[in-house]
């Protein structure tokens, strides 16, 4: 038997949503891994939850300013937004003024200071998607979900809607990303199906 076939066979390089990163087959521990916002993450309004989450995140990063964006990313991955209590803790641990942390979290588009839906629908508005009708698609999502792009979430807390400047899936334009799952050639005709599938999963 070849040395790699056993593990190689089971690996899903494409299935980002389903697979937590592992360190391949050396058994090495992956320290910093983008984990997914899942239903089983604790309640971000609970101080104990924030404290535990932050304790865990801080084990992966040196306490220096250069870690800030990675830490914010981890936090965003956990809750889909950045709870203020967590930002306070980061300010304290990294010794960075809170104002600077807010500057960073409002500058970069991947962060949100407000709670967002369990699933974030990102409609790609890159050039290839634009010339294939992404604008129309985005408007249709706004209509169907009845929420404006970039703000709030649906009443049931399931979806938030965002536009993103190119997800690098230009050949499958118009592309839509729901959390980390890609959808190709989305149009008003198959948008309903996408939402049903995501609502159920």
């Amino acid at each position: 038997m070849s040395p790699k076939s056993k593990t190689g066979k089971r690996r899903d390089p494409g299935d980002v949503a389903a697979l937590e990163p592992t360190a391949g087959d050396t058994g090495a521990k992956v320290p910093a891994s983008p984990s997914k916002a899942t239903g089983d993450s604790c309640d971000p309004m609970d101080p104990v939850c924030i404290c535990d989450t932050m304790d865990e995140i801080f084990t992966h990063y040196p306490r220096e300013e250069a870690s800030l964006i990675m830490i914010l990313q981890e936090l965003q991955d956990r809750f889909n937004w950045l709870p203020d209590a967590a930002l306070e803790r980061i300010a304290e641990e990294l010794d960075i003024p809170k104002s600077r942390i807010l500057a960073v979290s409002t500058f970069y588009k991947s962060f949100s200071l407000d709670p967002r839906g369990r699933k974030v629908i990102k409609v790609c508005t890159g050039t290839a998607c634009h010339v294939r009708g992404a604008g129309m698609l985005l408007e249709e999502f706004e209509r169907v979900l009845d929420i404006p792009v970039g703000e709030g979430m649906t009443d049931d807390g399931t979806f938030s809607l965002e536009s993103v400047n190119c997800v690098g899936a230009c050949a499958m334009a118009p592309a839509v990303l729901v959390n980390d799952r890609y959808y190709a050639k989305v149009g008003p005709g198959n948008l309903g199906k996408l939402l049903t599938k995501e609502r159920e999963s």
Partner: peptide, 9 residues
Amino acid sequence: AHAISTLSR
């Protein structure tokens, strides 16, 4: 004091 910041972009 680090009280003031630019926000957004």
